[in-house]
C-alpha cells in the first residue's frame, strides 16, 4: 500500500477534506458560542452602553453592576491586547450588524501600545471584509496560509475561548485575577515606567470616534483606574493625556478615572482591577461626578434619565477639568 504514489494523493485529498470539513464545523461552533466577538458578528448584541478597549477595558467593568447602577444594558466588547486598528474594525462591524448603542465607553490605554492583534481574530476571517483586509495588512506573512488551510484560521486563542463559552452563558465577567503582591509590582515597574501615546493610534481612535458619531453614538473616552504604583516613579498621566488630546477633535473629552481607586484589594496587578475593584469602581462612580462625566449618570441622579440632557455639563471634578477641551 505504501508503495503506490496514489497514496500521497489520497493523503492530500484526505487532508483537504478534513481541513475544509472540520473548519466549517468549527466556524459554526464559534459563531454559536457566547464569545463577545461571535455575538458581535452574529448580530446578537443589543446594548445601550458598549465598552471597548484592551485588557484594561476587559477588567474595567462588571457589566451586571454597571447595568444595575446606571439602568442601561451594558455590553463589554473589550479584548485582551486589542490594538486601535482592530478596535476600529470591531466598532465599525458592530455598528453594521447590531443596534447602535447610545454610548460607547472607550478605555484609551491601547493608544499607548502598538502590538497588532488582528491575527488573533482569524476565526472570524470571511465574516468581515474589514477584518480580512486588516489581517492581510498587519500580518501579511500568515494571511496566505489562511487561504491554503482553513483550519489555520482557527489557530487562535479565540477558538479555545469560543469552545469554553459554548457551555457558559456569558463571557462578560472577566476571569478573577489574583491579589496584587510586592513582587508583581516590582515586575510591573521593570517593564512599564511610563506610558506615552502613539500618534498613529490616536489618529485611528479619532476615526473610530467619527464612525460612532455618524451612527448617532456618543463616544466617551476614559482612562481607567491604575494602582498607585503605576505613578510611583513618574506621574506620566498629564503629559500622556495631553498628547492624546492634541490629536483628537477639540470637542472630545477624556474622563480620567486613573486615581479613582487606590486600595491594593482593588487590583490584581498595577494595570488591572480585581473583581473587588470593579465593584468598588462602580460604587465610587455612582457616588461621585465621575460617572456623569462619562455620560453614565445613574438614572436616580441624572435629571432626564437615559435620554435626558448631558449631565457632563454640571461636572466640576478636577480629574475631568485637567483634560477638558481647550
Amino acid at each position: 500500500m505504501w508503495k503506490k504514489p496514489g497514496l500521497v494523493l489520497a493523503f492530500l485529498a484526505l487532508t483537504f477534506v478534513v481541513d475544509r470539513g472540520l473548519s466549517a464545523a468549527l466556524g459554526r461552533l464559534v459563531m454559536a458560542s457566547n464569545l463577545r466577538v461571535a455575538a458581535l458578528y452574529d448580530g446578537r448584541v443589543d446594548a445601550d452602553v458598549v465598552i471597548v478597549g484592551n485588557s484594561r477595558g476587559v477588567h474595567l467593568a462588571s457589566t451586571e453592576a454597571w447595568s444595575r447602577t446606571f439602568c442601561r444594558s451594558v455590553y463589554n466588547l473589550s479584548l485582551n491586547g486589542l490594538d486601535t486598528a482592530t478596535q476600529d474594525v470591531l466598532v465599525r462591524d458592530y455598528l453594521e450588524r447590531n443596534r447602535p448603542p447610545e454610548i460607547a465607553v472607550i478605555e484609551i490605554s491601547n493608544v499607548f501600545e502598538h502590538i497588532p492583534m488582528a491575527g488573533e481574530l482569524k476565526p472570524f476571517l470571511g465574516d468581515s471584509p474589514r477584518l480580512d483586509a486588516l489581517v492581510s495588512e498587519q500580518q501579511g506573512a500568515i494571511f496566505p496560509w489562511t487561504r491554503i488551510s482553513h483550519l489555520y484560521r482557527f489557530n487562535s486563542e479565540y477558538l479555545l475561548r469560543a469552545l469554553l463559552f459554548l457551555f457558559r452563558p456569558s463571557d462578560q465577567d472577566p476571569e478573577p485575577g489574583g491579589a496584587i503582591t510586592p513582587a508583581i509590582i516590582e515586575t510591573y515597574l521593570g517593564h512599564h515606567a511610563r506610558f506615552a501615546a502613539h500618534a498613529d493610534n490616536v489618529r485611528i481612535l479619532a476615526a473610530t470616534l467619527e464612525a460612532l458619531r455618524e451612527r448617532g453614538v456618543k463616544p466617551v473616552l476614559v482612562l481607567g483606574p491604575y494602582h498607585p504604583a503605576a505613578f510611583r516613579e513618574v506621574d506620566w498621566r498629564e503629559e500622556a493625556l495631553a498628547s492624546v488630546k492634541a490629536l483628537l477633535p477639540r470637542d472630545v473629552t477624556i474622563v480620567d478615572w486613573s486615581s479613582a481607586l487606590s486600595e491594593d484589594a482593588a487590583f490584581s496587578d498595577p494595570l488591572h482591577m480585581s473583581a473587588q475593584g470593579r465593584e468598588d469602581l462602580v460604587a465610587t462612580l455612582a457616588a461621585s461626578p465621575l460617572a456623569c462625566a462619562a455620560s453614565l449618570c445613574p438614572i436616580a441622579v441624572g435629571s432626564g434619565g437615559a435620554h435626558g440632557p448631558d449631565p457632563r455639563d454640571r461636572v466640576t471634578a478636577s480629574a475631568v477639568a485637567k483634560v477638558a477641551p481647550q
Binding site: 500500500m1 497514496l7 493523503f11 487532508t15 472540520l22 488551510s149 483550519l151 489555520y152 489557530n155 477558538l159
Partner: peptide, 21 residues
C-alpha cells in the same frame, strides 16, 4: 497503515490548529 495515514492527517490538522508559527 491506514491508521498511520489517519494519524499523519490528524497531526497535520493539529499543526494547523495549534501550531505556534
Amino acid at each position: 497503515r491506514p491508521l498511520r495515514l489517519m494519524m499523519a492527517v490528524s497531526m497535520l490538522c493539529m499543526l494547523a490548529l495549534f501550531g505556534a508559527f
